[in-house]
Amino acid sequence: MLLEVTLSGATLGGMYALVALGLTLQYGVARIMNLSYGELLVAAAFAALWFYTGVAVSPLVGLIVVPPLAFALSFGIYRVLLQPLVRRAKTRDALEVDSILATFGLLFVIQGVMLAIFGGAYFSYSFLAVPLQIAGATVAANRLLALVLAVVIGVGLYLGLTRTRIGTAVRAVAVDPVAAELVAIDVRTASALAFALGGALVAASGVLVSMFLTFNANLGVVFTLKALVVVIMGGVGNLLGALIAGLLLGLVENYVAVFVDPGLTLAATYAIFLIVLLVRPQGILGRASR
């Protein structure tokens, strides 16, 4: 029982971690506080649903097709909607405020389109819904697959960002954009790419989520909030922190839902959020101040 709950909590946590990684890229590197972030997750979930139930294409193929589309869409959104804000913002703080307003609007646009197409009903599809036995515990194959894929994507991205020059350059923009220019990094392009990569990541999470969760057009905001919570808990801009905090949140939520009361899940989320902030205001792996 404990193992079962832990595994399904880890799956949820893996989703949170991926979603938080993407937000870290958008916020940490491009300095866009993207309130429409979770909408892309839901859109990707609907895309996977349509692929599977509409044209009988496996969500695994969706996982290969949808994120590049989200990358292109996010890149376009950045260039068209956000770059003018970047250009006119005098400081990074001003950009943050402007981007909150712009993406708040975007949230309603994307959500509105999805509501118009799908309504408010809940959707799910049955993909690999077969129980697997692991050390006496029963787990749905789709959950386990989602967890494994989340780990692969998360670890791959982490290694890419920490072990390669281009990944290090992306982190350098987050640390100090002026210094980044001084080592020949084109900060404007790097920001657009980081924003787009964040979009691809949240879309990948959306496809994975759709494999085992029921979702509807209103779910985006929940994931945006969870991503924010995880990013702040992990330490803003800290990749490893986001991974750990995401996993932690998924586990705690699932333990509380199963062993205490499903109605207290959200309360648990904010309880550990507050506890982390009280004990380590800079986040689990964040550093004291900047």
Partner: peptide, 19 residues
């Protein structure tokens, strides 16, 4: 304007980012 959060190795690696 060094990258304070990054290591010395990473700072030097980024120094050679230019083509």
């Amino acid at each position: 304007a060094i990258f304070g959060d990054l290591t010395v190795r990473e700072n030097l690696l980024l120094g050679a980012f230019a083509r």
